[in-house]
């Protein structure tokens, strides 16, 4: 915990406090940290352990069980390629393969420049427009292998700018 900044400690303490009236709020706490910080590193888990009395091994077990929780920071743009059944039977695998090839990372990995994280999603409920790709919440319907480069370029152009 040593290298958590005082403000991070304060913020996480506040998050834990937010749910103090809930019964067994661990999932809620972790979801809030994940969405506010983008990841839940070990030292944050240690702090949550201290604040809640839940053993850190148990917290770590929960964090690594659910695919929404991440131990490492994700890229600026999270490219989620849906591999639900509807998308898969319509070629979702070839879409993710193409992203993987063009970004040079495997699903679950982040590009060295920190711009993109490629991830395989299990159905985002957009089956009607399969195969679907979701980038930071924006859904690209009816993707094709040919459109992949174009989509990547769109975000490369935006680059690291906020």
């Amino acid at each position: 915990m040593a290298h958590l900044s005082a403000s991070a400690v304060k913020q996480i303490t506040e998050i834990v406090k937010r749910y103090e009236n809930e019964r067994t709020p661990l999932m809620m706490i972790l979801s809030a940290i994940q969405s506010e910080y983008g990841y839940i590193p070990l030292d944050v888990q240690e702090l949550v352990s201290d604040l809640t009395g839940i053993p850190v091994a148990e917290i770590y077990g929960v964090v690594t069980f659910y695919s929404f929780f991440s131990l490492n920071p994700k890229g600026k743009y999270v490219v989620g390629v849906c591999l639900g059944t509807a998308c898969y039977v319509k070629g979702g695998q070839s879409i993710i393969d193409k992203f993987s090839e063009l970004l040079g990372v495997k699903p679950g990995e982040t590009t060295p420049d920190g711009l993109f994280t490629l991830s395989a999603l299990r159905c985002i409920g957009a089956c009607s427009i399969a195969p679907a790709v979701s980038i930071n919440g924006k859904v690209y319907p009816k993707m094709t292998v040919g459109k992949v480069q174009e989509v990547i370029d769109e975000y490369r152009k935006l680059g690291g700018a906020n």
Binding site: T24, P25, L26, M27, M28, L30, S31, Q34, I54, E58, G61, V62, F65, Y66, S67, F68, F69, R122
Partner: peptide, 22 residues
């Protein structure tokens, strides 16, 4: 809220999840 685990559709796994467990 769930956090990305298919097995939580199984009712006892779901209960464990609400209870803050794996």
């Amino acid at each position: 809220l769930g956090a990305g685990a298919f097995v939580c559709g199984e009712e006892t796994a779901l209960l464990n999840s609400i209870e803050g467990k794996r």
